[in-house]
Amino acid sequence: MIYLQLFLTYIKIGLFNFGGGYAMLSFIRHEVVDKHGWIGSQEFTDIVAISQTTPGPIGINSATYVGYAATVNAGYSPAMGALGSVVATIAVCLPSFAIVLAISRFYAAFRRNRHVEAAFLGLRPATVGLIAAAALMLMNDDNFVDGKSIALFAVAFALSWRFKVHPIAIIAMAALAGILLY
């Protein structure tokens, strides 16, 4: 049952993800934290942090992790959890297969299709909103425990935005800061 739910949820995530990994975050969170309660809000933030420090797309990373965690949290063994990972990861890729096979034959026509182009006039700005929603949803008491959290946020923002410091370096510094500050 948990496998079927994971499968259907990640098919949906694969199918409605426009605008890259960060736009996908609000959607993934909505499904796995708010709707199904498979993982907690803090654990979700932790996965995002892990995704940002390990190779691979965030969509795959989240599917693999949530597939495992949801199955184990539902009371199954770690081996069953690994199978949950497989189910969610395959499910998130499946819509791409179906669509590529469907449009490969006439992809030049699809690319220059005026209707598709017009739809993107609306999709592109909405993508910015999807990413903003992901950031806003994570601005909660779980992630911001005190004033030090806000200071860390501000420093990380400045390092990334103004000085283009690599996310992995920023997360490593934040881990060190966490040990020193708490």
């Binding site: 950031a135 911001f144 860390l152 990380a156 920023i170 997360i171 934040a174 966490g178 040990i179």
Partner: peptide, 23 residues
């Protein structure tokens, strides 16, 4: 736990930045 307390607010910043770049 202490490491992740430091990391969590930073993750939010690392999403806010691509949001502004995308805009």
């Amino acid at each position: 736990d202490r490491m992740f307390r430091g990391i969590r607010p930073v993750v939010v910043a690392l999403i806010a930045v691509p949001c502004l770049s995308a805009a």
